[in-house]
Write a protein that binds this DNA or RNA. Structure first.
Lengths: 262, 262
DNA sequence: GTTTCGATATCGGTT
DNA sequence: AACCGATGTCGAAAC
């Protein structure tokens, strides 16, 4: 995994290292030390000299981390052009992105280490519990929302955006379902309201709106009731402990559902 | 900056390294190599064995990066408990978070390197061009939105959320301004609509709504016009080139504004 | 502690 | 290329 390494390099050594490694395709660079970082683009920022860690991945994404936080201090989601300069005896890296026009400029004051790595293709990440998965499960088992519910469509386009689940209840009324994988806020209610109003105006006079989520905030619940809309508790993940029977079958046929949904 | 380093360690050496370094406060750990990562919490994920980079910062945030993307493959914004285990001859790190209850489990298959760093306190980051800064500037110079506009309030609470700028125009009409630092979408229009309706219901019959942003999407603009709301072009950052005169004074008195706003 | 909103959001899908 | 919505969003401020 390590293709090249360098410790406590001076400016000249670092420059040589970078000049060489930046030309190698697929390199994953990590440089730790004292740096100054300036960003100008959608916004602009300046970081005083400090101990940071620069990471330049093979896909030309750049991030500079400080000792705190999940998020980097500065970053560049796509580096289109990379320049290596010298300024006042310091090595300077300028990473530019064309659209939006943005620049991250890193000046290396004192470098503790520089690593050039090679990484094999990553093994795929499989994520469960996304809203998309929830949608597939509920589309295959609409009775988990309400007995007698008959699915008519998923992601039905209505003005801007799409209705998560579009269905008909046992009394023949149109039902609009808005899904949230986490606690639903007033924004979700607002989204549901928008869809219900649109369907009411264009399709049927009587339309029910259901917000389906594991939880709902108090203000959202209040607003729901004011609007005559409903809430239905559904979980995005099967229970982690022995309580799997609490929501029987929600994910029982997931693999099959995945296929049937495509 | 480097407190300890280890290359191509076997399981025993890695375990000893971690046991030692995890007890040291303030350590910034980086481990590169082949790992398997499992996450269970709000959602759940599994990453097949692959070359990843684990970073555990002194503030007990954890992230595991793959070779692609700004965002980590897996992460933990706050590690409340950290456990070092052994499973089938492999070193395993389990990082747990209490609320929400979440676990990230990393199994080290083959480690290329492990670094323990110490980092001085970071120099502060100064960011310009945030919506908050925009708000301060426009609050100090409401004439940049419209001649004769008189500011009444900022972040005026109205039901849920707050009105960015609350003002009165030269004809005495109430004006609600919604700010966006980037291109405004239909969501911003919706937010504005909600505020305008609320003010209309509770304060004055005639209320104007202005969406102030550098740009607006076409659908959002259409929706704005349907609702009888207005758009005003304002920029979040002063121009980067010589065209600073294009928006004279927007940030001219920024420092003073900052003080007066506090 | 809960809720809300901003973010250089990033990221992926669809039109 | 623009637009839209989800995200294990994260993070901070207001309440």
């Amino acid at each position: 995994m390590i293709a090249a390494q360098l410790f406590q390099p001076d400016a000249l050594e670092l420059q040589e290292f970078l000049r060489e490694q930046l030309l190698e395709p697929g390199r994953w660079l990590q440089i730790g030390g004292e740096m100054e970082v300036v960003y100008v683009g959608r916004a602009a920022s300046t970081a005083d000299a400090g101990d940071y860690l620069l990471m330049l991945k093979p896909d030309r994404t750049l991030q500079i981390h400080a000792a705190k936080g999940i998020k980097p201090l500065n970053w560049q989601p796509q580096v289109d052009s990379l320049e290596l300069l010298e300024d006042d005896g310091r090595v300077v890296l300028v990473a530019e992105r064309a659209r939006p026009q943005e620049i991250v400029r890193v000046a290396f004051l004192e470098t503790a280490f520089a690593l050039a790595l090679t990484a094999r293709d990553e093994g795929g990440l499989v994520l469960h519990g996304s809203e998309a998965e929830m949608q597939r499960s509920l589309a295959a088992h609409p009775e988990l929302i309400e007995v007698g519910l008959e699915l008519l469509d998923v992601e039905l386009p209505v003005g801007v955006g799409g209705v998560d689940l579009y269905a008909r209840d046992q009394h023949g009324r149109i039902v609009v379902v808005e899904l949230k994988r986490g606690r639903a806020t007033h924004e979700a209610v607002h989204q549901l309201e928008r869809y219900v109003n649109r369907i009411r105006d264009t399709v049927a006079d009587e339309v029910r709106g259901i917000l389906a989520a594991p939880e709902v905030t108090a203000p959202a619940r209040t607003r729901l009731e004011e609007l005559g809309l409903e809430f239905c508790e559904v979980t995005a993940l099967p229970e982690l402990d022995d309580e799997r029977d609490a929501q029987p079958g929600l994910f029982a046929g997931r693999d099959e559902d995945d296929h049937s949904a495509r």
